[in-house]
Amino acid sequence: MPDQPVARAEYVREQVKEQNFGVVRKPLTVGERIWGQSAVRKAVILIVLAGLWQAYATYLNNTLLVPTFLSTVQSFIGHTLTGELPGKAWVSIKVLLQGYAIGLALALAIAVLAVTSQIGNDLLEALTAMFNPLPAIALLPIALIWFGLGNPSLVFVLVHAVLWPVALNTHSGFLAVSNTMRMVGRNYGLTGVGYVCRILVPAAFPSIVTGLKIGWAFAWRTLIAAELVFGTSSGSGGLGWFIYENKNTLDIPSVFAGLFSVIIIGLLVESLIFRVLEERTIRKWGMHLQ
């Protein structure tokens, strides 16, 4: 056993010039690039699901239980061309947007109050603990007594569905803003509204977007459920009422077409509005990993 490591000569090497390399960056093949799009992968999943649906319904051969995918699409296109489905969907969306907007504004106000004062913080915690577990639809009977038959009751229920989850998410986002960023804002003389709008809201944006998505889903669910239960009350009736009506006449493909449009609107909002919002904000800023 030698007690010294083996003596080795030193060496210095010439570097190979960059242009003498064969390939440093190899472009992906067309197939790899197409498969790399999440929209493509999701489309494949949807097509496979639709295929399974069609196969099972054809095997079952019972239109009253499960109509085939194709007859659903047929009914969907038929009702769309007559303008019945778009009209009903628009009635639903109009009410939905009112409730969503009011809910968001209230949620932001409460979250700001909670982050600026101790008593506001306690208020938010107490209110969300009480009202968040309460299903919005359970308030509909009371809303009908308070606001009568019509849109105001639906809007009230929607606000309740949106307010608490959004406020909770926004608040936790505000709390997670790093102390350094807060100090930076104060260093440049920001206080009050300027501080909230220019530091807290953008810094908490990842949580706020999550809150917006959850709020949207809650609002949509609540609205359809409310229309199914008290559909006639909302005047001309929305998608929920469309589903309810067609169930009564045992036009099951149309019931599926109604559900189908609920799903499609959900997918469109997710992939067009929220995805674009994320691309333009938190992904561009590199904040989506947090």
Binding site: T180, M181, V184, Y188, G189, L190, P202, A203, F205, W285
Partner: peptide, 30 residues
């Protein structure tokens, strides 16, 4: 106050939603 500007150790002192230029402009405008 802005008469004593602080440079921190942490990298997150830059606002991630603003570009390099916007970060500097932000300080001047805020």
């Amino acid at each position: 106050g802005p008469d004593r500007v602080m440079v921190f150790q942490e990298f997150d002192q830059l606002l991630p939603w603003k570009t390099v230029k916007q970060n500097v402009v932000f300080a001047l405008e805020a």
